[in-house]
Computed example of a mutant assay.
Amino acid sequence: MQKITPCLWFNFNADEAMEYYQSIFPDFKVTHKSYYGDWGGPHAGKLLTAEFELFGMKMIALNAGPQFPFTEAISLTINCKGQEEVDYYWNKLTAGGGQESMCGWLKDKFGLSWQVAPEELTKLMAGPDKEKQMKAAQAMMKQKKIIIREIEDAVNGVTA
């Protein structure tokens, strides 16, 4: 059993977000929905929460209004294998109003922050050679979407 379940607070657009994420992530599935009852006032009958799984991780979407918008203080990291997977998630999550940031970070159209992180970058930055780690970090700091080849070239001293 998963001991901790992240809850994402949406501005009364959680149902739209569930459809959006389902179109991006092949294994995304909604496992339960609850609705505002008669006590919900103007929201009676509308979605209150959606429990869902993303890559096997259970999460909750709360449809509760604009009081607490997403910030970069919390993000979801997608560990990718290769540039093709990085490109796929980056392009999907920035489409339709998403925003690119730096170092593999972005916000989707709902304002949720994501890190699209290739495994290759993690290996380059965690290797035993401190100089190569520094070169990898310096190359990454210049990028928005991570371009693996550019970082590998910087680490290996290859110039364009």
Score class of each variant (00 low, 15 high):
residue 99 Q to Y: 04
residue 104 G to T: 09
residue 121 L to P: 08
residue 131 E to Y: 12
residue 95 A to Y: 03
residue 55 F to L: 06
residue 127 G to T: 13
residue 17 A to M: 03
residue 136 A to I: 04
residue 119 E to S: 12
residue 11 N to V: 00
residue 93 L to S: 04
residue 35 Y to T: 12
residue 55 F to G: 01
residue 121 L to A: 05
residue 6 P to F: 00
residue 144 K to C: 10
residue 97 G to Q: 07
residue 82 G to I: 13
residue 98 G to F: 09
residue 80 C to Q: 03
residue 15 D to I: 00
residue 13 N to R: 00
residue 67 Q to F: 10
residue 142 K to P: 00
residue 31 T to Q: 07
residue 145 K to L: 03
residue 148 I to F: 08
residue 23 S to T: 08
residue 65 G to C: 09
residue 126 A to N: 15
residue 64 A to Q: 00
residue 3 K to P: 08
residue 105 W to C: 01
residue 101 S to A: 10
residue 120 E to R: 02
residue 37 G to C: 06
residue 151 I to S: 00
residue 74 I to N: 10
residue 117 A to S: 06
residue 25 F to S: 11
residue 75 S to K: 10
residue 19 E to Q: 10
residue 20 Y to C: 09
residue 131 E to K: 14
residue 120 E to D: 10
residue 17 A to N: 02
residue 99 Q to H: 14
residue 41 G to A: 14
residue 131 E to F: 05
residue 99 Q to P: 02
residue 40 G to S: 10
residue 6 P to H: 06
residue 66 P to Q: 08
residue 154 A to V: 02
residue 70 F to L: 02
residue 129 D to N: 13
residue 23 S to A: 15
residue 100 E to W: 02
residue 53 E to F: 01
residue 77 T to E: 08
residue 138 Q to H: 02
residue 3 K to R: 09
residue 44 A to S: 13
residue 65 G to H: 06
residue 25 F to D: 05
residue 47 L to C: 04
residue 152 E to G: 12
residue 157 G to F: 03
residue 94 T to G: 06
residue 5 T to Y: 04
residue 31 T to G: 06
residue 130 K to H: 07
residue 138 Q to R: 02
residue 3 K to L: 07
residue 51 E to M: 08
residue 14 A to Q: 00
residue 68 F to E: 11
residue 101 S to F: 10
residue 127 G to H: 12
residue 105 W to Q: 03
residue 109 K to V: 11
residue 130 K to V: 14
residue 96 G to H: 02
residue 46 K to L: 11
residue 4 I to V: 15
residue 66 P to F: 11
residue 30 V to I: 15
residue 54 L to F: 04
residue 35 Y to F: 14
residue 5 T to F: 04
residue 139 A to V: 15
residue 102 M to G: 03
residue 97 G to W: 05
residue 152 E to C: 07
residue 21 Y to E: 10
residue 117 A to E: 04
residue 16 E to H: 03
residue 58 K to D: 01
residue 29 K to M: 05
residue 20 Y to T: 13
residue 63 N to K: 00
residue 143 Q to H: 01
residue 136 A to P: 04
residue 29 K to Q: 09
residue 36 Y to K: 06
residue 151 I to H: 01
residue 24 I to L: 07
residue 28 F to G: 12
residue 71 T to E: 10
residue 87 D to Q: 11
residue 144 K to F: 01
residue 138 Q to K: 01
residue 82 G to R: 03
residue 120 E to M: 02
residue 33 K to A: 08
residue 28 F to M: 11
residue 145 K to P: 01
residue 37 G to Q: 13
residue 118 P to L: 11
residue 145 K to N: 02
residue 3 K to Y: 10
residue 31 T to S: 14
residue 152 E to T: 15
residue 144 K to N: 13
residue 137 A to I: 13
residue 118 P to V: 10
residue 57 M to T: 13
residue 54 L to C: 15
residue 129 D to F: 07
residue 158 V to W: 01
residue 129 D to G: 14
residue 149 R to N: 12
residue 70 F to R: 00
residue 129 D to R: 01
residue 34 S to T: 08
residue 133 Q to A: 14
